[in-house]
């Protein structure tokens, strides 16, 4: 069984550590906030100018001046702070944010990422993604292993315009957990019931398989 979007987020949440400052992108990455281990102090950075992002407001308590980078209404938490966009990307560029989680259309075996443009079809812009991937030391990509036509999104080289070069460290897909190494995608864990052969067949880039590959374990 491939992982649901919630399970991808749940698995990524296991990469969080006490005291981390974390930037979560739009889509599956946003769901990671729902799985921060109880008692762990993690501060969420929203690049539109907030450290200490809280949950959605209760109905009737929405504040139009308080949104996240996905333009959703949110809340603050005790200790939150606001700042302007230059400082926001300043702290990202200076490497103060410990972990960045974002989505991707394609990732290459060298850690290149493409997620902002499909020529002739879709031009939405890169937003903050290029700044994040150029500076973050620890980047995890949350993505589907294949596109809706069943074609691999883990490639030898990206075919779409790049967002960043050689920056992705780890991928959590619906099928597997993989590290990006100098030798290619290294398979670390597989979704429950998904075989190494299936992952191999759906990974177009170079896949390294060493020894027994454990299944992803969910504790709750």
């Amino acid at each position: 069984m491939s992982l649901t979007k919630e399970q991808i987020a749940q698995r990524i949440a296991r990469e969080l550590r006490e005291g981390y400052y974390v930037n979560l992108g739009i889509g599956i990455p946003t769901l990671v906030a729902n799985y921060i281990p109880v008692g762990m102090n993690v501060v969420l950075q929203s690049e539109n100018g907030l450290l200490g992002m809280g949950p959605f407001p209760f109905e009737g308590e929405e504040d139009p001046d308080l949104i996240n980078a996905g333009k959703q209404t949110i809340t603050t938490v005790p200790g939150s702070v606001f700042f302007d966009s230059a400082m926001s990307f300043g702290m990202i560029r200076a490497g103060k944010v410990n972990l960045t989680v974002l989505g991707a259309m394609e990732v290459s075996e060298r850690g290149d990422i493409a997620n902002w443009k499909i020529p002739g079809k879709m031009v939405k812009g890169m937003g903050g993604a290029m700044d994040l991937v150029a500076s973050a030391r620890n980047i995890i990509v949350a993505m589907m292993h294949t596109n809706p036509r069943g074609e691999s999104k883990l490639l030898p080289s990206c075919t779409l315009p790049l967002t960043g070069v050689g920056c992705v460290k780890k991928i959590v897909s619906d099928l597997a957990v993989l590290d990006i190494t100098p030798a290619g995608f290294k398979l670390l864990e597989r979704a429950p019931g998904v075989s190494v052969e299936e992952i191999q067949s759906k990974t177009a880039g170079k896949l390294l398989v060493e020894g027994e590959i454990p299944e992803i374990v969910f504790y709750d």
Partner: peptide
């Protein structure tokens, strides 16, 4: 890139003609 947009404003306001940023290296 969003950080580049912010920083190009900042540079103007701080009287600096240009800045160096890693955002977009290796891309179009």
């Amino acid at each position: 890139p969003q950080g580049t947009l912010a920083t190009r404003c900042l540079a103007a306001g701080y009287g600096m003609p240009a800045v160096f940023t890693p955002a977009g290296v290796g891309t179009e």
